[in-house]
Structure formats: C-alpha cells, structure tokens
Design a protein around this nucleic acid. Sequence first.
DNA 1: TAACAAACATACCGTTCTGTCTATTCCAGT
DNA 2: ACTGGAATAGACAGAACGGTATGTTTGTTA
Lengths: 206, 206
Amino acid sequence: MSKKRDQLVESALELFGREGFHATGIDKVLAAAGVAKMTMYKHFRSKEELILAVLRLRDERWRNSFMLGVEKRAKDPRSRLLAIFDQLGEWFSDEGFCGCMFINATAEYADHDDPIHAASAEHKRLVEKYVRGLVEKARPSDPPDPPDSGLPGIPGAGVLARQLCLLMEGAVVLTQVCPGGDGGCAAAAAKGAAGVLIDRAMGGGG
Amino acid sequence: MSKKRDQLVESALELFGREGFHATGIDKVLAAAGVAKMTMYKHFRSKEELILAVLRLRDERWRNSFMLGVEKRAKDPRSRLLAIFDQLGEWFSDEGFCGCMFINATAEYADHDDPIHAASAEHKRLVEKYVRGLVEKARPSDPPDPPDSGLPGIPGAGVLARQLCLLMEGAVVLTQVCPGGDGGCAAAAAKGAAGVLIDRAMGGGG
DNA sequence: TAACAAACATACCGTTCTGTCTATTCCAGT
DNA sequence: ACTGGAATAGACAGAACGGTATGTTTGTTA
C-alpha cells in the first residue's frame, strides 16, 4: 500500500529487535526511516500500534522462512522434525541475531492482557501448531494424548510437539544469553535431545 | 549493612521484575522503597549499578532456593534430576511469576559486553554448572564427552546437563509467554522429556 | 489550471527520565 | 547536651519521551 508505511515498519522492525521496545524512541525510528512524525501518526494511532504492526510482519516473515527452511532440508515428516533444529542453528548464526522478538516482547510487556503480549503468545501458539502438524504427519497412527501426559509411556502428538517446542525455546534463549562458541552449539544439543524423544515417541516405525 | 540500601534493592527487585528495567523509573523505585533520591545516589552511582545489585541478589536467592528445593525433594542424585522440574513447576505457579529476570534482562540489554547482559550470562552458567554437578553425581562412571556431542550415542555429562537446561529454559519461557492453564503444564512436559533423556543417557544402572 | 491528498518541516505540549544540588532534620556516640 | 554523619525533602537542570498542532510543499488527477 503505502511506501512510507513500509519503511516505517521496516526500520522499526530492526530497531525494536536490536535495542528493545522501550529503549527505542519514536524519533529514532522516524530518523531511520526518513519519515516525518505526522506521516507516522497518520498510519498508526500510537507507538503501540506500530509495535503490533512490527510483530505481525515479524511473525509472518519468521514463520514463512522457518517452515520453508524446514521443508527444504528434509522430505519425510520424521526427519523434518530434526531439520527444525538445523534451521534454528542457521538462524542463530545469523549476524545480528538478537533472540526471539516475541520472547523479548513478553519480557517488556509482562501483562497477559496487553495486546503486545497477546500477539506474542499467538505467535508461539502458531509455531507449536506447525510443529504438532509435523508430528502428526510423522506418525499417522495417532493415539489420543493419554491423560497423564508427560510421564513414561508413549506420549501423544501434543506432548511430543510441546517437548520439541521446549527444546526450541530453550535453544533460542540459551543462544541469546550465553556468548558460547558457534551459533549451532545449543541447536546441536537440542537436536540430539529431539532425536531421542522422537525415537522414544514413535519407536522404529514411521 | 545499610537498611535503606536493602530497602532500595528490595523494591527495585520487585519492580524491575514485574515491569521491566527500562519501564521502571528511578522515582518509582524510590517511592516504593520510601527512600530519597540522594540516598540512592549515595549508595549507587547510577541506575545500572542498582540493576546489577538487584541481579546479584536475585541470583543468590534464586539459586539457593532452587538448589535447596531440589535437594529436599529427592535424595539420590538421579531422581534429583527429575525433581528439578517439580521445583520449576512450583516456581511457575507462584502468584506473580514473571519469568526469569535474567532472560528478561538480556532481552532489554542485548549487547553482550553490557555488564547487565554479562551478569545474566554468568547466572545461567552457574545454573548449568549445578545441573552438571547433579548429572555427574548421578553417573559416577563418567566417560568424557564424545567429540561429536549431541548425536545419537551416549552423551557425556556436559551434553546431558545442557539438554536438561534447554528443557528448563524452554519451560520458563513458554510458561511466561503462554497463558496456558496451570503453572505446572510446561514443567510436566519438560519433566517427561527429561526422564527419557536421563534414561537414555545412563541406561538402567546408577 | 484547479483541486486534493499525502508527505513535509517545525514548533510545541505536558510528562517523565536520570542525575545534581541545597538546606534541613534525624539520630547515635561521646 | 553537643556534635557529626546519615538520611531527608524538594527544587532544579537538561534531555528525551509520546503525542499534537499549524502551515507548507509536492505529486497526481481532472
């Protein structure tokens, strides 16, 4: 639609991602985008709306790139579950990797009723949904989740998906916090754990 | 030492934890602590130094409470590894749980050279060190880490500890972001995954 | 050329931020 | 009772904040 609008969201995406939301003032975004303040307030009612637009764009781009990457790396659903962590590893070694913008957003907007927090939760829900879809494809014979999920016994698709997501989020966070070595370090450990969990959950069969 | 100093750090601990670092102004901390601004600037050179003092206190308290809780819940080292996640579950269901203050800190202070980021990384390192100690006690016959860690094969103590930490951090983050049900949900899933990983890593023996 | 909307610059609003300063009060040790 | 250090309140500085108001330029369309 509007070119200036796109420039705004683009600059805000980078600045919010790199320096945080509260720490990034509107003026900094405007200067980076080369846009006048009035123009911004014609497109967005407030800073919060700009943030929400940024989160929408980020969610769309990240999930698309993530799903595409996973599906390029492997064809059969089961190895795609492992490819998740290779894809994460590539993301981690991106120069300028600043962690997950949605995790960072919930750190700054802790109130669960806050639209920014809600948008971040929705993103995580969509990611988990995608992972769960992969799990279900990897095991077409899908027993429903046992009621006492999480304990020894074959976990249902939901439980396995959630456990894989735990590994994913853990890898993101530890990579962000710790300066440790090459980017793929936490991703590799997570991949190893994921392999064990997947084997356990679906045995030798497909 | 100083009573006012303690009140300051105490109030700052709660406010920074609940509302974030940039979003919490000095004046709010001062009002909550019932302390004058000059007194604060006699004890701390800047807001950053106050934050660092808060992080030191938080690290000390959290790790003590965590280790004590884990060691109370189980006696033998191996079940202590599982007790980690029960302890996390209790933390999650604390009213006013706002995620991990150190993860939140790195979200707001992304620069790895920033003292605040460095302090957070150090905290995570200490937690992983503790977990690794538990792993080593749980398996006294400890082969050195294989060079190609993370791939199928019996992982060394370092790899297993790291994988357990991934599950821990993942549980923290997902609990913080998603409104999902009772606090123990993610913790339970993580515990299930941890059980599988531990069994795999040390077989039936002790 | 006339009309119109979008983008422009800029000054300004009130608020809040971190940090400084002065002057006063409290309280403990001698 | 006296004194000195610690804590106090509160005004203040200077900058940055989110957001608004006014008026001008630009580009397109008719």
